[in-house]
């Protein structure tokens, strides 16, 4: 009588081996990988605790809104768990998550500030950025930073209250004791300056990111 041994069907996992070339990262993510093998929920919690805050901090450099930054990072974590990406990712979780966050932020900026430009199809987040593109991502948030720094203090203040803190125009007007019209004018000013700056960059980004070409 031959008996086939069911190969422990529950809790089976074939998370890719960490790359032995990189002892630092291997050690750092080893616990997380191991937890994913034992219990995906636990693995997810470890991953989340390790990277959620720094990823949000990175995202906000692009989107300048707490809410948007947390939404973007939350969506990425959710997809990571839902699609069981921990089973298939070949690079470190860290590299994957940062790449994803940057890509999503770029997509968001595109929708927000350059919707009319003839570029679509941003779904393929899997595209791993080239060295040039990687550098370009830094350039992008530096550009956003300098643009916001260049705004007059009052405009900057209104912009941050609205975007960063997510306050409504009426609330800002009340708090700063200015008219609603002034707040609206400041916001228009800030957004159009930002849009202009981003559009200048966009020409460059279009050349760099083939996934943007229609």
């Amino acid at each position: 009588m031959i008996s086939i041994q069911p190969a422990s069907p529950l809790g089976e996992s074939d998370a890719p081996e960490s790359n032995p070339k990189h002892p630092i990262l291997l050690d750092k993510e080893m616990l997380i990988r191991r937890a994913f093998e034992e219990d995906p929920r636990k693995g997810f919690e470890f991953l989340y605790r390790q990277y959620y805050a720094p990823l949000c901090s990175h995202a906000i450099r692009y989107v300048y809104s707490k809410e948007q930054a947390e939404d973007i990072v939350g969506d990425i974590f959710f997809a990571f768990w839902q699609k069981e990406l921990y089973k298939s990712i070949q690079i470190s979780f860290q590299a994957y998550l940062y790449t994803c966050v940057r890509h999503h932020c770029l997509t968001y900026l595109k929708q927000e500030f350059a919707r009319d430009l003839p570029v679509e199809a941003l779904e393929s987040a899997s595209a791993f950025p080239s060295p040039e593109q990687t550098i370009q991502y830094e350039e992008l948030y530096h550009r956003i930073n300098t643009t916001i720094e260049s705004l007059t203090p009052q405009v900057q203040k209104v912009f941050l209250m609205s975007r960063f803190e997510g306050k409504k125009n009426q609330v800002i007007a009340r708090e700063l004791q200015v008219s609603l019209k002034t707040v609206e004018a400041h916001m228009t000013r800030a957004l159009s300056t930002l849009q202009k700056a981003l559009r200048q960059d966009w020409t460059l980004l279009l050349l760099l990111f083939p996934l943007f070409s229609a």
Binding site: K28, Y52, P54, S57, H58, A69, S92, F128
Partner: peptide, 25 residues
């Protein structure tokens, strides 16, 4: 290509050291 891993490692360290805001995890 392995250098990307180091790149994101440093980026993560940098974000740790220079948070732009503290989310409520």
């Amino acid at each position: 290509p392995q250098n990307y891993e180091i790149f994101y490692e440093y980026l993560n360290d940098w974000e740790h050291d220079h948070p732009q805001f503290i989310p409520d995890p």
